[in-house]
């Protein structure tokens, strides 16, 4: 589904990613862990198509397409979803209207008819339950005045509505209390299927108690220095990131 080969990326001439290799297949959950500044969020941003980053080397293939050739909106329509670390507040843009527009853009791209107001609302009702988001939030402007936890839930709610093939969760656990974390994890787990995949980017092992990964990758200094089964996360938690700083990069 996703094939990242020798990915190098920089921002303002500063090299952040220095040769990432990653293969993700449908049905898999990958966790990408690493200390601050290792390049985790850069990887998420490059996948989603943030223009501030320049890819200097390497390739990304997504569902048979060259991802780097696609604009951010085209990636979304192809089925890529980024849950933002810091979802932005957009005063004046209604959450509901925005989501309806987004969903219908994606449906159009998939050759489906747009949802009318009634079907859209019933779909919303169904998905609201999944992330236990307060319905009144969706009557407000997008993320405006939302708490940190509400913003993260709203990200997962949008993900549930848009049904992506590949979801990238960028530190979705940061700033969440344990109850919110469980709700977010439950949402992700419920949406999991054999056809879609998830990349969980996180600093802490805690989230992985609730979203169980098939693979754990450790990112350090712009490279994946260690990959392994879910137990690797526990080992990291125990030994700390200093442990991997001495490790050799894998290729």
């Amino acid at each position: 589904m996703l094939s990242i080969k020798n990915l190098h990326a920089s921002i303002e001439d500063k090299q952040i990613l220095k040769g990432i290799n990653l293969e993700v297949k449908p049905g898999e959950v990958h966790a990408i862990m690493g200390p601050n500044g290792s390049g985790k969020s850069t990887l998420a941003s490059v996948l989603a198509g943030r223009e501030d980053y320049e890819v200097t080397e390497g390739s990304i293939e997504f569902l048979g397409k060259d991802l780097l050739e696609l604009e951010a909106e085209e990636r979304a329509r192809e089925g890529l979803f980024l849950a933002f670390q810091y979802p932005v507040e957009i005063p004046g843009v209604s959450s509901t209207n925005f989501l309806k527009t987004a969903l219908n853009q994606i449906r159009e791209h998939r050759g489906l008819d747009p949802l009318d107001a009634v079907s859209f609302l019933s779909l919303m009702k169904e998905k609201i339950k999944l992330v236990e988001i307060d319905k009144s939030l969706l009557n407000r402007s997008l993320n405006e005045g939302f708490s940190g936890g509400e913003k993260k839930r709203n990200e997962i709610f949008q993900m549930a509505m848009l049904e992506p093939r590949l979801a990238v969760l960028d530190e979705t656990d940061s700033g969440l209390d344990i109850d919110a974390l469980k709700v977010v994890a439950n949402g992700v787990n419920t949406l999991k299927s054999k056809d879609n995949a998830t990349i969980v980017v996180t600093h802490y092992q805690r989230l992985l108690d609730y979203i169980v990964p098939d693979f754990v990758h450790v990112l350090y200094n712009g490279k994946i220095v260690k990959s392994g089964p879910k137990e690797l996360a526990l080992e990291l938690e125990e030994k700390g990131y200093d442990w991997i700083k001495e490790a050799e990069p894998i290729h």
Partner: peptide, 28 residues
């Protein structure tokens, strides 16, 4: 706001559509 623009585009809204939406929200 570039960040707002990117957020909307990352959800599948075309650039022109995202710009119009943000400008309208600013004006409203």
């Amino acid at each position: 706001d570039k960040e707002q623009l990117f957020y909307l585009r990352s959800r599948g809204l075309g650039e022109q559509e995202a710009r119009s939406l943000l400008l309208y929200a600013f004006a409203i």
